[in-house]
């Protein structure tokens, strides 16, 4: 027993990496699927979007970049499919300049897939510096921050934007967050202008966002790859997040097993000293 744990303690870390890699690759390769039961907070987000009247305006903020893409990009695709299916109008902007093109790619992909027209069903505003200043000014007049869209087309030339001036004209704000911008949305858009917000976040920051949900400051929360998989399930368009859940489960079981094994080994070796 002691010898076993001593050997285990000296195992080359690369063997563990290899086992993790096999655990991740195999389910993807064989397209293995697990049944997904959406979490209540994700369903809450879905139900809120379902409840919005047709042609309501939804503001989507891209607050992440390529390093968080595996979690948030599938979430964005699923959300866009849902809002376009509901015939809602999408306004997209971003606070992470490196990530803004990711939002644009997804928006154009899904709009094309759903037959939506630029300027009528959706528009892309791009990036402006100064997170708090942008959020506060959006509460007064969008044109004071974004006089034009990303192609320098004046906002009033876009039919969908003619009657949209501030948060009062936006039914829902969806923030996809990999950092602290979500906190700013809650502090400036929700607290000051009572804007309804759904936050989608990377798993790292999801525990920090739960208090907002519990306090009723946001109307839904989609957390991490699991949240993205839940949303894909709810809109019935399984994608990369749903495929990744099997790998996620395998690696989680492996991590738990290794933690237990490591602790047992630690106690066995300590007792024998």
């Amino acid at each position: 027993m002691r010898e076993f744990f001593e050997k285990l303690g000296k195992i080359d870390r690369r063997i563990i990496y290899l086992i993790v890699a096999i655990g991740v690759i195999t389910p993807i390769l064989f397209k293995a699927r697990l049944p997904i039961k959406p979490l209540p907070e994700v369903r809450q987000a879905f139900d809120y979007i379902e409840s919005l009247p047709e042609s309501s305006a939804v503001l989507i903020s891209i607050d992440y970049d390529a390093s968080s893409m595996p979690e948030l990009q599938p979430m964005l695709y699923a959300l866009l499919r849902h809002v376009f299916r509901k015939n809602l109008r999408v306004i997209m902007l971003g606070h992470w300049p490196l990530g803004v093109p990711l939002g644009q790619i997804a928006l154009e992909d899904v709009a094309k897939e759903m037959g939506k027209k630029y300027g009528v069903d959706y528009c892309f505003l791009g990036y402006r510096p100064g997170i708090a200043a942008v959020m506060l000014n959006l509460g007064k007049e969008i044109r004071s921050v974004f006089a034009s869209d990303y192609k320098y087309t004046p906002l009033d030339s876009l039919p969908m934007m003619r009657n949209i001036h501030n948060y009062n004209d936006i039914a829902l704000l969806i923030g996809l967050e990999a950092g602290s911008v979500g906190d700013f949305w809650v502090q400036f858009a929700q607290a000051r202008f009572n804007q309804k917000i759904i936050l989608g976040s990377t798993a790292v920051i999801t525990p920090d966002i739960y208090p907002y949900l519990q306090a009723g400051q946001i109307v839904g929360l989609i957390g991490g790859l699991r949240g993205a998989a839940d949303y894909e399930t709810l809109v019935n368009t399984p994608g990369p997040a749903s495929i990744g859940m099997y790998s996620q489960t395998v690696v989680h079981i492996l991590v738990v097993a290794l933690i237990i094994l490591g602790n047992v080994g630690y106690f066995v070796l300590r007792r024998r000293k």
Partner: peptide, 23 residues
Amino acid sequence: ASFGYTVMARVSLLIGRMYFLIH
């Protein structure tokens, strides 16, 4: 809870890259 979520996030990134390579 935070640590568990962080593990999940890091594994998700690996899954994302592997999905890209395979798919």
